[in-house]
């Protein structure tokens, strides 16, 4: 199982980015093999619209089964649901702390988007 964490850095000590679509990177952590890779999301930082959808496509393409992030807008939520990927809301300061929380089973899958779209 692979979990994508929104972040601004490239290692587990990096901060967990509260934004999904406009996070600059994702750390895709493989829970079985205990390693991670970094997915670049820079193209979305300045996207006029559709950043959440494009980010969803990127993490799904990379094989993520779940997303851990701060907040998720309506379009990204709908896109990730269609792909069967669960989204976990997390306030942890770092990717490592978020990973620990995920492993402990304290994160619950979101049942709806928790923020408005940014472009309206």
């Amino acid at each position: 199982m692979k979990i994508a964490f929104s972040t601004s850095g490239e290692n587990l000590d990096a901060p967990l980015d509260g934004r999904f679509g406009r996070a600059s990177k994702f750390i895709l952590y493989d829970l079985e093999k205990e390693y991670f890779e970094v997915i670049d999301n820079q193209q979305n930082l300045n996207a006029a619209q559709g950043a959440g959808i494009q980010a969803a496509e990127a993490v799904v393409r990379a094989g993520a089964n779940g997303i851990v992030t701060g907040h998720c807008g309506p379009n990204a939520y709908r896109a990730l649901c269609a792909a069967g990927v669960a989204i976990y809301n997390c306030e942890a300061p770092t990717v490592a702390a978020a990973l620990t929380a995920f492993r402990a089973g304290v994160l619950l899958p979101m049942e709806s988007a928790d923020v408005e779209g940014h472009w309206v």
Partner: peptide, 23 residues
């Protein structure tokens, strides 16, 4: 369709494309 749309109004994430009308 998803690759063509630069506005990300149609995206392929599951078995069929999703349409985001407002985009």
């Amino acid at each position: 369709c998803s690759k063509f749309c630069q506005y990300h109004a149609i995206a392929l994430l599951g078995a069929t494309p999703l349409v985001f009308q407002e985009l």
